[in-house]
Amino acid sequence: MGIFDRFRGHGQDKAKEMSDVAEKKVNEKTGDKYTEQVDDAQQRIEGAAGLKRDRPDQP
Rank of each mutant, 00 (worst) to 15 (best):
R6P: 00
V26W: 14
D20T: 06
G2F: 01
D54V: 15
D20A: 04
A49H: 08
K25D: 07
L51M: 10
Q42N: 10
D5V: 05
E36M: 08
M1S: 03
R44V: 13
A22K: 11
K25F: 13
L51K: 10
P56Q: 15
E46F: 03
G47Y: 00
D39V: 13
D20G: 06
E17D: 11
E28F: 07
E28Y: 09
K14M: 10
F4Q: 04
P59G: 14
M1P: 03
P56E: 12
K24Y: 15
R53P: 00
Q43R: 08
R6V: 07
D57P: 08
G50E: 06
E46L: 12
A48C: 04
I45T: 15
R44T: 12
M1Y: 06
R53V: 08
A41N: 09
D54F: 08
A15I: 11
D32N: 15
I45M: 15
E36Y: 05
F4L: 15
F4Y: 14
S19Y: 01
D5L: 07
N27A: 09
T35E: 01
V38M: 06
G50Y: 08
A15E: 05
K25P: 02
T35W: 03
D40N: 09
T35F: 00
R8I: 03
A15G: 06
R44G: 01
D32Y: 12
V21H: 02
E23Y: 02
A48P: 00
G2M: 08
S19M: 04
A22I: 10
Q12D: 09
Q42Y: 05
M1I: 11
K33F: 07
D32E: 15
G9C: 01
K29Y: 07
A41W: 07
G50D: 02
Q43P: 00
Q12E: 05
E17L: 06
K29E: 09
G2E: 06
P59V: 09
G2P: 09
G2I: 02
E36V: 15
Y34I: 12
V26D: 03
R44A: 08
K14G: 03
